[in-house]
């Protein structure tokens, strides 16, 4: 009996809650929701901003589309959004060019960056989905294939592969364009010097950092050593403290 009473009380509480909250919910979430719809006039005037933004000093805009926003959208939505962004970018480019020609300041140029950022993110999300689909269906990523190759000068680079209508041995143009590493005395000599250069550069950097750390320790004796070690991970601080340069010039008492 007691529990039943409790349940009844709870129910009434819920009822009250619902009664109290429902008008607010409707008010703020469904009917009063603000959304903007661009008018699709499909005209050459789409290359220009809306008339109220002509000759204005500042135009305020929202943030760009993030990847997390875009991941929630369906493929068709993304496809539509791409064209919206494309048109927006064209519009901004047109306005920028006109401002430049008329020797005026282009208002809020960050809009262009925002649009480009959004487009990049969108393409990235589409690419993610594409890779997921391909992996599921074929077990491969479906990305452009490539591999590490050694160039004619013996340096490694990422070679992006391409489809050709004729086989490799017949493709004279390709063989002329792409020369890969083949043993050569001069290339060996070049590589020796090249590596020596890199080695010397690295050694100099090591010595420079070592001396710099000693200098820092001399100037700031109460420095945080962990932070220093984090910033210069290659420097042995214990060794630096043993150096004769550490400690400054002063006569022992």
């Amino acid at each position: 009996m007691d529990s039943l009473f409790k349940v009844g009380k709870l129910m009434s509480l819920f009822n009250n809650l619902r009664l109290n909250t429902s008008p607010n919910i409707f008010k703020y979430s469904q009917f009063n929701r603000q959304f903007s719809v661009t008018t699709a006039n499909n005209d050459l005037m789409e290359f220009f901003d809306v008339k109220k933004n002509w000759g204005v000093e500042e135009i305020r805009s929202g943030r760009s589309w993030r990847k997390d926003d875009l991941r929630l959208k369906s493929n068709t939505d993304l496809h539509k959004l791409w064209y919206v962004l494309l048109k927006e970018r064209n519009m901004l480019l047109t306005m920028e060019q006109e401002c430049k020609d008329q020797a005026r300041l282009f208002p809020s140029p960050e809009r262009l960056d925002k649009v480009e950022d959004s487009m990049e993110n969108l393409e990235c999300v589409v690419r993610e989905r594409n890779v997921a689909y391909h992996k599921l269906e074929t077990g491969e990523t479906g990305e452009r294939p490539g591999k590490m190759e050694t160039s004619a000068f013996g340096l490694k680079y990422y070679y992006k592969m391409c489809e050709y209508p004729i086989p490799k041995f017949m493709n004279k143009k390709w063989t002329e364009k792409y020369k890969f590493f083949k043993y050569d005395k001069d290339v060996e000599a070049f590589l020796l010097k090249y590596r020596e250069k890199i080695y010397i550069e690295r050694r100099r950097k090591r010595a420079r950092d070592f001396n710099h750390v000693i200098g820092l320790m001399n100037r700031f004796p109460n420095m945080d050593m962990d932070a220093l070690q984090q910033q210069y991970p290659d420097v042995d601080i214990k060794k630096a403290k043993n150096s004769r340069k550490y400690g400054g010039h002063f006569a022992p008492k």
Binding site: F47, F48, N90, L93, T94, E98, E123
Partner: peptide, 20 residues
């Protein structure tokens, strides 16, 4: 290649600007 389906561009990244 001849006979394969027509290539379609889904996300064109061409830009155009109207100039004076």
């Amino acid at each position: 290649q001849k006979g394969s389906p027509q290539l379609r561009v889904f996300l064109p990244n061409f830009w155009m600007k109207l100039v004076r």
